[in-house]
Design a protein around this nucleic acid. Structure first.
Lengths: 336, 336
DNA sequence: CTGTTAGCGCTTTCAT
DNA sequence: ATGAAAGCGCTAACAG
């Protein structure tokens, strides 16, 4: 392995001069600079970032911890984070906790040990202690997608309550009165906020919030499937379902189809989260979309600001607007 | 920040003893060990991996460089890599080159400087020099998905030629004689191998390989769309299309629909690559699936073997089987 | 403009 | 069973 010393010897200068040439810090005569650059080229030298990091105690590396890397919503966030970070010379480590608190805290320990400069975190269910641990170790942190009540930390997320409200109001306006919501885990803000928006829309329409119509589960296809089955078998059967994320909607879709029912003829369906257009031949699902890419870029910006030192002391909470996109999975209820 | 010295002082021992306790190397009396562990707990000490790495010159970190992180095929590979690596105590850095040779070589430089222990690489079009650079710097490398003719390196990929052969033979058996293939870039093995499989199936059926039926483009939705438009406007119009990957198939689907045609009534469609079942309500596309997760795990295993030192000198080429899944996008041609 | 010295936090080597 | 010293590759801080 070639080191600064090798280059220095070859160029007939000190290691310090080599360092100065590499980092463009301090003045070096054009002549010397040329000799050094020549030596670097000849030897194919590349600085050892490890050593450099040990000196500066900065890795120029941030981590993005999400709950499910297989969900296109988080993949899109990831690409927003990557683009922003890379433009500023930061590398990104991706971690997926699959919503397990244990995996999350293990990852956080690894990140602290690896001395990443900062962390973007989508907290797993029941998480929150992770944020405390990160802060205790002086690691600037930004929480994404989900809101933590008990933490004093920067947050970037989409408007869950408002989005759900819009989606459910759309159903109400179509004439639906029996509307079920299939949500995620109880302890997560995205679950409860979407339920809150759902309730608000029902209240506004003076529809009694029948508690049996609110189901909590997980943000997975399997959970969506089993929740939808419960709802479909209930009497009276709801004429519309609001799914709190894309995977739940897929599961619901499967359950509806298996029950021999059709969307939107028998049941209308609205989902939180859209799919990238490349993956759907002919999008038919009415959805509430979140600006995933922007959540990623915005969160990365907040973090990099803090790393740069030019950020206010107070934590910032940024809520980006969600947007209802009406397609073909919603229609007035059948009047039979 | 707490360091070994802090812990040592607190426990009334030398830094060396602390190090021994942390790494379970060398004998330490139970009594001392307890004191040290106590001090570690009290101070919330976590070893600085940076310093450790500088000594050992190993980062326990590998990189996965793919061409498109948004493609579920690569996401699935990534999860296979992650699971395998993490089980062995390695972290993974993900990089997406978007098939740009420039971005690839930039990433490779970063990886070398960051001293990752090894690299899993899906080479971009025209890549290959990256592998040389990695090898020159002594970085164990495994090439995924694509074959490099001029490199002596471990490779793991699925059977492109065989898969395409099966897919096209299926069309031939249904009675199709006018079959077009929409492929990726010319210089990439997955493109050309799939064309080779296509040709083999046609030859076997004694169908003249009309060269106008072979199109090269990119592995993107947009490219699939424009290639499909060309093909649809040709006379005579092919009765079947073989798309060399999932994104190309999506683009083709869009073009077919826009032309007022239907699948499979007017045109049959077979695609390389499947989609995760969660993302498709009711899979209708006949596909050639690749064992993406296994490509990831197998490649990671080969790399970790090399890192462990117990791997043969010779490069290993592993080709995993592809598999035809017949669904509803293929049917006999209309006899009009 | 260039060089010398010291030290980042840790572990290897050699003593005790 | 424990400790002292040295050094991994690099760069601040201070000469000259």
């Amino acid at each position: 392995m070639t080191t600064v010393s090798d280059v220095a010897r070859r160029a007939g200068v000190s290691t310090m001069t080599v360092s100065r040439v590499i980092n463009e810090s301090g003045a070096v005569s054009p002549d010397t600079r040329a000799r050094v650059n020549g030596a670097i080229l000849e030897l194919g030298y590349m600085p050892n970032v490890l050593a450099r990091q040990l000196r500066s105690m900065r890795t120029r590396m941030i981590a993005l911890v999400v709950t499910d890397i297989r969900n296109p919503f988080f993949t899109t966030i990831a690409s927003g984070v990557e683009d922003t970070a890379r433009a500023r010379g930061y590398a990104v480590m991706f971690c997926s906790t699959y919503d397990s608190e244990v995996d999350e805290s293990e990852y956080v320990r690894v990140l602290i040990q690896r001395r990443v400069d900062g962390v973007l975190l989508v907290p797993a269910c029941g998480g929150g202690s992770s944020v405390q641990l990160l802060q205790k170790h002086g690691l600037p942190t930004v929480v994404l997608d989900r809101h933590l009540v008990d933490a004093s930390v920067d947050e970037v997320r989409a408007d869950s309550k408002g989005g759900a409200y819009e989606g459910v109001r759309h159903l109400v306006e179509l004439g639906h009165r029996q509307i079920a919501i299939l949500s995620g885990p109880q302890g997560v803000s995205t679950s409860t906020d979407r339920v809150a928006g759902y309730l608000e829309a029902l209240m506004e329409a003076s529809i009694a919030g029948d508690r049996g119509q609110i189901l909590f589960g997980e943000f997975t296809e399997a959970s969506g499937y089993s929740m939808a089955r419960q709802v479909i078998e209930a009497k009276p059967r709801p004429t519309a379902i609001f799914a709190a994320n894309n995977f739940i909607a897929f599961g619901a879709m499967r359950a509806i189809r298996e029950a021999g029912l059709r969307v939107p003829d028998d049941i209308s369906l609205v989902a939180f989260d859209d799919l990238p257009p490349e993956w759907v031949f002919d999008p038919m699902l009415t959805v509430v979309t979140q600006p995933a890419y922007e959540i990623g870029t915005k969160a990365a910006e907040l973090l990099l600001e803090r790393l740069g030192g030019d950020a206010p002391d107070c934590p910032r909470g940024i809520v980006l607007p969600s947007c209802l996109v009406i397609r073909r999975s919603t229609a007035p209820p059948r009047s039979d």
